[in-house]
Deep mutational scan, measured.
Amino acid sequence: KFGRVHERAEGPAKILAIGTATPFHWVDQSSYPDYYFRVTNSDHLVDLKEKFRRICNRTMISKRHMFLTEEILQKNPNLCSHNEPSFDVRQDILVSEIPKLGKEAVLMAIDEWAQPKSKITHLVFCTRSGVDMPGADYQLIKLLGLSPSVQRVMMYQQGCFAGGTMLRLAKDLAENNKGARVLVVCAESSAIGFRGPSEDHPDNLIAQALFGDGAAALIIGSDPKMGLERPIFEIVTTAQTFVPNGDCHLALHLREMGLTFHCTKDVPPTIAKNVESCLIKAFEPLGISDWNSIFWILHPGGNAIVDQVESTLGLEPNKLQATRNILREYGNLSSACVLFILDEIRKKSGREGLKTSGDGLDLGVLLSFGPGLTIETVVLR
């Protein structure tokens, strides 16, 4: 008597548009150690500064975009301390800036989509910054002038794996609601975790050397309108798992001094060791076991992770080039990073006149991972 209210779509979910945005301000990685130790009044920690310089040199990052300028840091000195309470200051900045950054990426996506924004039916927003109620999803709806009846899902504090999570959720929403057009937004800022150095917490140096700011937005829907919408990728399958006891290797915690970062040297080999089982589960039903026969979007948690995944799986050097390019130009953008790589690989395919948006290949994989050593596996066509 009370059956399904919403009719299912006929076809699989497809990515119809991609937009990205970054803050205008950026830092050069080669000179960042001098800048970082100067603005945090830590130049007296000579040995720690040299250690940080070595870490920065190993990241293979060229530059990173950041909202925090020297002027902002001078006005808010607690942000430059390692342990002073600064959460309220971070909140005041990020509750406002995260939706604005997301808006810039959304406008780029809508411009490519070339359809009225009134056709957006759902919003899925993800960030690890600016936790608030009502959330960044609500603020973004107002900034864009979208209908208050847009169906919203707000996900805070997920971390680097969440780019894949957003695709998984959007696929379910698009395929189970005929005519749905799902706006996916990942907006991230390193301002939540920026803090001064400490000899007692070397993990913090890794975070300060890796993370950048950026937002990515996608429009996802099934059954694209012929002649009006141009699909870029099809989302074939999605899956999530985590490595048992992985939280002892990688975890982040909200504290009075901001978001703290805990990471062990076992993260790269542990991820590399567990990736292939995810690939087998995803691609065995499709008859694929040659990992060089697919295109790759791999989250660059750090250069060591990229190198070890490449080595463990025997990947050809060009397979992870898009990942390395984004890491070099932006650093680790947390949940937004794989979506930047997705954009990079389709643009490169277009520039080179390849037959598909995925490096000329039919199928590919998007792998994202993060806290708890959670792994998201997304098969794309």
Results as ranks from 00 to 15, higher is better:
1 K>S: 06
2 F>I: 10
5 V>G: 10
10 E>R: 10
10 E>T: 11
15 I>D: 02
15 I>C: 11
16 L>C: 01
16 L>F: 09
17 A>H: 13
19 G>R: 02
19 G>C: 05
20 T>C: 12
20 T>F: 09
23 P>K: 12
25 H>L: 11
27 V>G: 03
28 D>N: 07
28 D>P: 03
29 Q>H: 07
30 S>A: 15
32 Y>A: 07
36 Y>H: 05
37 F>P: 00
41 N>E: 06
41 N>T: 12
42 S>T: 02
47 D>T: 11
48 L>S: 06
49 K>G: 03
50 E>F: 00
50 E>R: 03
50 E>C: 05
51 K>A: 00
51 K>T: 08
53 R>V: 02
53 R>Q: 13
55 I>A: 13
56 C>S: 08
57 N>A: 12
57 N>G: 10
58 R>C: 12
59 T>R: 02
60 M>L: 08
60 M>Q: 12
62 S>F: 01
63 K>G: 10
64 R>S: 04
66 M>I: 03
66 M>V: 06
66 M>L: 03
67 F>G: 10
68 L>W: 03
68 L>A: 06
69 T>W: 11
69 T>V: 04
72 I>M: 08
73 L>G: 10
76 N>Q: 08
78 N>D: 11
78 N>M: 01
81 S>N: 09
84 E>A: 09
84 E>S: 12
84 E>D: 10
86 S>F: 08
90 R>T: 06
90 R>A: 02
91 Q>R: 14
91 Q>S: 15
94 L>A: 11
97 E>D: 02
99 P>G: 15
99 P>Q: 15
101 L>R: 08
101 L>A: 07
106 V>C: 13
110 I>K: 08
111 D>N: 13
113 W>L: 05
113 W>N: 07
114 A>W: 00
115 Q>W: 03
115 Q>V: 08
115 Q>D: 01
116 P>M: 07
117 K>G: 02
117 K>S: 12
124 V>R: 02
127 T>H: 03
128 R>W: 15
129 S>R: 08
129 S>V: 08
130 G>Q: 08
133 M>T: 11
134 P>H: 03
134 P>E: 14
135 G>T: 10
136 A>V: 12
136 A>W: 14
137 D>S: 15
139 Q>H: 06
142 K>D: 04
144 L>K: 01
146 L>W: 02
149 S>P: 07
228 L>I: 14
228 L>C: 14
230 R>G: 08
231 P>E: 15
232 I>L: 04
234 E>S: 01
236 V>M: 02
245 N>R: 10
247 D>E: 08
247 D>W: 11
248 C>Q: 13
249 H>G: 13
251 A>R: 08
252 L>K: 15
252 L>P: 15
252 L>Y: 13
256 E>N: 12
256 E>T: 08
259 L>A: 14
260 T>M: 13
261 F>G: 15
261 F>N: 15
261 F>V: 08
262 H>W: 12
262 H>C: 15
267 V>M: 08
269 P>L: 11
269 P>W: 11
270 T>V: 09
271 I>K: 10
272 A>E: 06
272 A>S: 04
272 A>T: 09
273 K>T: 05
274 N>A: 12
278 C>S: 05
278 C>F: 09
280 I>W: 00
281 K>R: 08
283 F>K: 00
288 I>F: 01
289 S>Y: 15
291 W>L: 12
291 W>V: 07
292 N>G: 09
292 N>R: 09
293 S>R: 08
294 I>F: 03
294 I>Y: 09
297 I>Q: 04
298 L>K: 11
298 L>V: 13
301 G>C: 12
303 N>D: 09
309 V>Y: 01
309 V>L: 11
309 V>T: 07
310 E>A: 09
310 E>K: 09
311 S>G: 09
313 L>F: 12
318 N>K: 12
319 K>Q: 02
319 K>W: 04
319 K>E: 10
321 Q>E: 02
321 Q>H: 09
323 T>A: 07
324 R>L: 02
325 N>A: 06
327 L>D: 04
328 R>W: 05
332 N>L: 01
333 L>D: 08
333 L>Q: 00
334 S>H: 14
338 V>A: 09
339 L>H: 15
341 I>M: 12
342 L>S: 12
344 E>R: 04
344 E>T: 02
345 I>P: 06
346 R>L: 04
347 K>C: 02
347 K>F: 00
347 K>R: 09
347 K>W: 03
348 K>D: 00
349 S>F: 09
350 G>Y: 13
353 G>I: 00
355 K>G: 03
355 K>F: 01
356 T>A: 06
358 G>Q: 06
359 D>M: 09
359 D>P: 06
360 G>Y: 01
361 L>V: 08
362 D>G: 01
363 L>Q: 15
363 L>R: 14
366 L>I: 12
368 S>P: 08
368 S>M: 01
370 G>Q: 14
372 G>A: 10
372 G>F: 15
373 L>A: 14
373 L>T: 14
374 T>Y: 14
375 I>H: 13
379 V>Q: 14
